[in-house]
Nucleic acid binder design. Structure first.
Length: 353
DNA sequence: AAAGCGGGGGG
DNA sequence: CCCCCAGCTTT
């Protein structure tokens, strides 16, 4: 792309956006706080799903100070159904960090913003370009597709390459609109399947289109295979609930799954109950021998270790399998009522490695 | 650099 | 069923 092409792309895209932009709620403002909330909700989440959540969230927490003093449980409740709940926790953490450092809103400083939890390169640049017209590029699902087709990249693109291309297109002003225009084009015209090249404002500059390869760009990374993994699972019982602590990788406790709806039937053995649980989750696997059982008088927990061999879901192949489960990160275990025996057990098993 | 996080929507 | 979606964090 030479300088003239780039200038033409900027002009055409901005003109197209001003005529065709959807009237989304977060576009009615340049309030950095609102833009921030929208950007976080939109991470890995489609626009249509976000709109009602965004409106409701802003009714409860209209400003940064309100969010900074919010109860995290309340924020999480408002987040229910959006997924990736760490986003909500990070939202609270970042709001409080800003307040504690005497910021009354998101500062116009990428170096500062980038250090806040939940602010990666994309979110930092998206918020600052839209709120303050900072000249910062963005790369996400939509603009990635646009860039790959526009530049005719017929191989797996490298991230650094895409960021560089995105920056090369940025105008001097209206940067926020331009970034949004790239995304809007990807959402409305340069779609993943059946792109509408006939109505694309920059089709004349599109190498992918010129090569007739738009349907084969961008190329996808091969999806990971489902492979067999030997695992050790720990079953924690309390009353009629089960909690499984699983160790997918040797020497590292990666996750803890709670199954609030799984009830061990009267008289049913733990091993049978776990087998039934695996089946009900659609996981193919077999429950092997019981390794050990530990009873905690104080906590009323009984912990059973069993060998479980599971056909382990890799990549996104089994996304959704664990719906309705509560996910707890190991570093968050201290906040969880069942953490003490779990960690004790983790240390014991770890010592055996 | 690669894997994991979650839920919904569409083909 | 599979792919895709306004990514971030950790290893």
């Amino acid at each position: 792309m030479n300088t003239r092409d780039v200038a033409s792309i900027r002009r055409r895209l901005l003109a197209w956006f001003r005529k065709n932009a959807r009237p989304l709620p977060w576009r009615a403002t340049r309030d950095p706080y609102r833009i921030w909330i929208s950007e976080v909700m939109l991470q890995q989440t489609q626009v249509a799903a976000v709109i009602p959540y965004f409106k409701r969230f802003l009714k409860h927490f209209p400003t940064l100070p309100k969010l900074a003093q919010a109860d995290e449980q309340m924020v999480l409740r408002l987040w229910e159904g959006l997924g990736y709940y760490r986003r909500a926790r990070d939202l609270c953490r970042a709001a409080r960090l800003l307040r504690n450092n005497k910021y009354r809103t998101i500062p116009d400083d990428p170096e500062v913003v980038r250090t806040l939890p939940g602010f990666g390169r994309y979110t930092t640049n998206a918020v600052l370009s839209q709120a303050y017209d900072r000249r910062l590029p963005i790369v996400e699902a939509n603009s990635r597709r646009v860039l790959c087709r526009l530049f005719g990249i017929e191989r797996l693109p490298r991230d650094a390459e895409l960021w560089q291309l995105a920056e090369s297109l940025l105008p001097q002003r209206s940067v926020g609109d331009f970034n949004q225009a790239m995304m809007e084009l990807g959402a409305l015209v340069c779609t993943a399947t059946n792109p509408h090249c006939e109505s694309c404002p920059i089709a004349v500059h599109c190498r992918g289109r010129r090569m007739g390869r738009q349907d084969h760009i961008p190329v996808r990374a091969p999806s990971a295979e489902v492979c067999l993994v030997d695992e050790v699972a720990v079953i924690v019982q309390r009353d009629d609930r089960l909690l499984i602590v699983q160790r997918p990788d040797a020497g590292r406790w990666a996750r803890m799954w709670e199954f609030p709806h799984h009830v061990r039937a009267p008289g049913e053995s733990v091993l049978d109950s776990v087998q039934r649980l695996l089946t009900s989750l659609g996981l193919e696997g077999t429950v092997g021998d019981e390794i050990a059982t530990i009873r905690h008088r104080v906590t009323r927990f009984q912990i059973t270790m069993v060998c479980v061999q599971v056909h382990h879901p890799r990549g996104s192949a089994q996304a959704g399998t664990y719906a309705n489960l509560t996910w707890v990160r190991p570093q968050d275990l201290h906040a969880y009522p069942l953490s003490t025996p779990q960690r004790r057990l983790a240390r014991r098993l770890h010592a055996d490695d």
